[in-house]
């Protein structure tokens, strides 16, 4: 979006939306992992982690990430804050 349209509070241009949607859908197509499968994997991860650590399932994010060379699964699992010190991210 350009400065002028942002000023007017306009919607994002459909060309940019098209590109973002394509990038998302191709990440799943190329890895042959559907968004549904990703959800299941996320639930499994939550179950395993929650046995040992305190986490908030709502804050867990599991994503596919694509480069030209490889696809990778990226999980972000914030641990529940305990006295402000014990925070970690597992990748």
């Amino acid at each position: 979006m350009n400065w002028f349209e942002r000023l007017l509070g306009k919607q994002e241009k459909s060309g940019a939306t098209a590109k973002q949607r394509l990038q998302m859908v191709l990440i799943h197509d190329r890895a042959d992992v559907s968004p549904g499968l990703l959800e299941q994997i996320k639930d499994d991860i939550i179950e395993v982690i929650a046995k040992r650590l305190e986490i908030n399932p709502d804050n867990v994010v599991v994503n596919l990430d694509n480069t030209a060379q490889e696809s990778r699964l990226v999980a972000e699992i914030p641990l529940l804050q305990q006295n402000g010190r014990r925070r970690a991210t597992v990748q």
Partner: peptide, 19 residues
Amino acid sequence: EMVARGDMLSIDDVLDILA
């Protein structure tokens, strides 16, 4: 004209995606 006004994927967008 549609590319210019941002309402169509541009040549670069398509090449970026398909490589």
